[in-house]
Each structure stands twice: as structure tokens, then as C-alpha cells.
């Protein structure tokens, strides 16, 4: 398996000396207490922030070497809240592709199908959607750029159980069938076990433990992870 992203000794005010590799076409989960630096790490990987120290690589090149818009398009990010733009579902879905003049009505239908929303929702104003629907539109909006890596920040936390199950299936499909690489923050340890081949455990800004999910959960090394699992 090839490394698609790598963080080397990355440091800023919320993240402390983080070092890890993200394997191509895998789903890695990231767990850890609130305020442990998980979201900040995703922001660094998407280059929405820069580290004070250390380097981040994407496909063996430093992320600074890519044009920043191209990099962000290739490393898609979905936030904990949908943060939809004012307007219709279509306005949101075409935001990314339109920047590259690649939008077509068919793409809109395909994306909605992928996130299991009816096609007639395209012309609906986003303010009329439920929280779950908004989150799915946000997800589809990121998929519209066809990114190679997906950074997901607790995207299932506001969804009901049925939608979570569906979302987990979609994530597996994206990895297995479309070859995406996913790094997903979750607070739900069971979800991390169900989903991830690999898991990163963040604590107080440090990457405390990393490894295969089943192994990590069965034999945690650090007291922090033991406590986190027991809590």
C-alpha cells in the first residue's frame, strides 16, 4: 500500500509534534477527547492553516508545492456543520465544479443519487432542508470536486442511526469502489471499530497512538487511550 499523505513533526499552537502516514485507499479514523487537536489537524492537512513547524506531504510532494486551490480540491473536507451557502442545493453542488467550469446538470443528479437524496431537491432552497439533508448536501458538495482524499470532521454526529448506517456504507463504497482515501474524526468508538482499518488517537495535541483499529482497541498502550476507551 502506498502512502498518499504524510505529516512529519507537525506543530502549531493546538497540535504538538504529530507524525503519521495516510495509506492510499484506506479509511482511517481519528479519535480523542474534545480539544485534543483533531479538527486542527484536518485544517492543516487541507492547508486551511499552516503548521509552525514540520512538513506535510501529499503524494510525496510537500503540500506547499501544489497550487493551493488544486490541493484543496484534491483533499476535500467536510465539516462538522454543513455550512451550506445561501441559495439552492444546486448552487451548493456546483460551487466547486463551476470554479473549474466543469458543472453539468447530470453531475448534480449523480451526486444526489450518491448521497441518497431525491433529484427534485436540486432546486430547493437549502434553508428548507432538515439537518440530516443539509449534511448530505455538504458531503455531496465536497464529492463534486472528485477529491482523492476526504477529510471528514464528525460528519455523522448530527445524523439519526439509519442515516449513519447508510453513510458508513457510502464511505466503504467510496474507498473500495472509487479508490478514495478517507480520514474521519469520530467520537463514536463503535463507529471507529466498524469503519476504520487504521485509527489515530489524539490527546492534548499529541498523536498518542496509531495503528490497526482492532489491535489498538484490544491492546491500548497509553493510559490516556485506556481511559478514553473505558469512559
Amino acid at each position: 500500500m502506498k502512502t498518499i499523505m504524510e505529516a512529519r513533526n507537525v506543530k502549531n499552537e493546538r497540535v504538538d509534534d504529530v507524525h503519521f502516514e495516510l495509506m492510499e485507499e484506506t479509511l482511517t479514523t481519528m479519535i480523542g477527547p474534545s480539544g485534543s487537536g483533531k479538527s486542527s489537524l484536518l485544517m492543516l492537512l487541507n492547508r486551511l492553516e499552516d503548521p509552525d513547524e514540520g512538513e506535510i506531504y501529499f503524494k510525496s510532494k510537500k503540500i506547499e508545492q501544489y497550487p493551493i486551490n488544486e490541493l484543496r480540491r484534491n483533499i476535500g473536507m467536510v465539516f462538522q456543520q454543513a455550512h451550506l451557502f445561501d441559495g439552492t442545493v444546486e448552487d451548493n453542488l456546483k460551487f466547486g465544479p463551476r470554479l473549474k467550469k466543469k458543472w453539468s446538470q447530470n453531475l448534480g443528479s449523480e451526486l444526489l443519487e450518491k448521497v441518497q437524496l431525491p433529484v427534485d431537491i436540486l432546486t430547493k432552497d437549502v434553508s428548507h432542508l432538515s439537518g440530516g439533508e443539509q449534511q448530505r448536501v455538504a458531503f455531496a458538495r465536497t464529492l463534486a470536486n472528485d477529491p482523492e482524499v476526504l477529510l471528514l470532521d464528525e460528519v455523522t454526529s448530527a445524523l439519526d442511526m439509519r442515516t449513519v448506517e447508510w453513510m458508513e456504507k457510502l464511505l466503504h463504497r467510496l474507498v473500495d469502489e472509487e479508490g478514495k482515501t478517507i480520514l474521519m474524526i469520530t467520537h463514536d468508538l463503535k463507529q471507529a471499530e466498524r469503519l476504520g482499518s487504521y485509527t489515530l488517537f489524539m490527546n492534548e495535541g499529541r498523536l498518542e497512538e496509531k495503528g490497526e483499529t482492532s489491535e489498538l482497541f484490544r491492546h491500548p498502550n497509553s493510559n490516556a487511550l485506556k481511559k478514553f476507551i473505558e469512559a
Binding site: L48, R72, Q81, G96, L99
Partner: peptide, 20 residues
């Protein structure tokens, strides 16, 4: 802030992310 970050993460430049 969230919407602007979302726009940037989708590949928008500063001007495009500020349009709204």
C-alpha cells in the same frame, strides 16, 4: 467563518470565498 472555510476548502480563492 464556517462558510468561508467551506468555500476555501472547495478550491475557491479569497475573492470567490468572499462573494457572499
Amino acid at each position: 467563518q464556517g462558510k468561508v472555510l467551506a468555500a476555501l476548502s472547495l478550491g475557491a480563492n479569497a475573492s470567490q470565498a468572499s462573494q457572499m
